[in-house]
Design a protein around this nucleic acid. Sequence first.
DNA 1: ACTTGACTTAGAGTTAACTCTAATCAATAT
DNA 2: ATATTGATTAGAGTTAACTCTAAGTCAAGT
Lengths: 118, 118
Amino acid sequence: MYTIGETAGLLGISAHTLRYYEKEEIIVPLRDTGGDRRYTESHIKWLQFVIKLKETQMPIASIKKYASLVTEGEQTALDRLNLLAEHQRSVRAQIQMLQDADGMLTFKIASYRTLTEA
Amino acid sequence: MYTIGETAGLLGISAHTLRYYEKEEIIVPLRDTGGDRRYTESHIKWLQFVIKLKETQMPIASIKKYASLVTEGEQTALDRLNLLAEHQRSVRAQIQMLQDADGMLTFKIASYRTLTEA
DNA sequence: ACTTGACTTAGAGTTAACTCTAATCAATAT
DNA sequence: ATATTGATTAGAGTTAACTCTAAGTCAAGT
């Protein structure tokens, strides 16, 4: 069980952001007797997954959608599968685009090398 | 020579965005006798490059920086090389991160498949 | 002559995703 | 006993990158 500060530290995000994710219904932490948020190992795992989705450009709105499917339970498994499969296509498209850009940069950089070494 | 509308169509961005890039000093189009913007082939090529940088998450501020180096001329070639080399490192880091995410998604999706097919 | 559509400008509005502020409270450290 | 630390809330502010609005000019088509 972690406090909001510990959780933020562990994940490398701010406590502010954790409260924002809660407001967006992406995560629902427990509360201790004093009313403070408490995060379990399974909350942490879920947040790490959310952060991975974020890093790969999934918008908060889609993450929210996925989170709501998880909350709805077992019978949404197929919907979740489809959502992730769709996102995987987007991730692969991003990789392709970045590889093209990498090639272009290699070429540009080589031109500048020729220029500056001449 | 293209009008702003033609250029926008060619590049798949809006005329508004082209004016915005001009305000940010990323591009300086010519003007016809009526004062309307005119874009040459070389403007188009430059804009295509700018769009590639954008797609690969280079912030407008950095693109602006690069554009100003280009304007300054030959003697900034080494600075430009360094800027692009730095960006290439970022592009490669993005590719790496996306490939990890792709693996994770493959795993998650496989789990859901097992679940929904059982 | 009139309408249509593209262009001009300065500047306001939008969206996503935070990020911070203010005012307050509760537990711990000196 | 007081000071610090870290938590709480609602709601305001920020940043990047557009995106649009208003008010207007101008050329071409009917």
